[in-house]
Amino acid sequence: MSDRGGTRNGGRIGTLAEARLAAGFGALLRRDLRLAVRQGSDTATVLAFFVIVVSLFPFGVGAEPQTLSAIGAGILWVAALLAALLSLDRLFQADYEDGTLDYLLTAPAAPSLLVLAKCAAHWLTTGLPLVLLSPLLALLLNLPNAAYPALIAGLALGTPVLTLIGAIGAALVLGARRGGVLLSLLILPLYIPVLIFGVAAVEAAATGQGFRAQLLLLGAFLLAALALAPFVAAVALRQAAE
């Protein structure tokens, strides 16, 4: 970015534009975080949902510690998936309805950078608390001690991917009828790879095997999602605003 701007504009304008871009990103991130705090964010709802879904399973499959520890990783990951989905349909909704989105799309910052800022705010207010809460719930599910690092690392790498892929879906369903339900139909199939490798990492760790490969793959998903999802979501936002 800086090289291109530098050679084309003789340096000064390039860095200026860069500063404005960064300001746009930072400003939007700060605004969304502030809004989340002021409006008594989704964080509490999402965490409560996560805890309740996880605590339903012992009633469904029986409370034997062996059963729970065998399927605990799957339960935690599926619950995290659903919890992440819960708040995603409102990622752009408020901005779409009050016209802020149109304004943001005409701002000097690249739309994909704005999407990235909104995703970062969403992850910080919902994904990160999920990651931090997960060891506590793993305790309830009797997960073996060796599995904890893989669970936390996997969720830390995986939940941003859920947010980023979800952002595409959230942008696509703007203005649709029954957008929330539709979003889960669109996005859940795309979450399957993250689920598979997230659970596999925990299971490998629980049986004493290495889980580096699974985490590396989750990391690869994260990098790919970081590179592609904001761009695609920006295209979707622009066609929604047309």
Partner: peptide
């Protein structure tokens, strides 16, 4: 299919579905 039929304006649904 659900996305194509989710909008009052069919053109909007068609565009969203293409991205999907």
């Amino acid at each position: 299919i659900a996305l194509t039929h989710a909008f009052d304006d069919p053109a909007r649904g068609a565009r969203a579905a293409c991205i999907l």
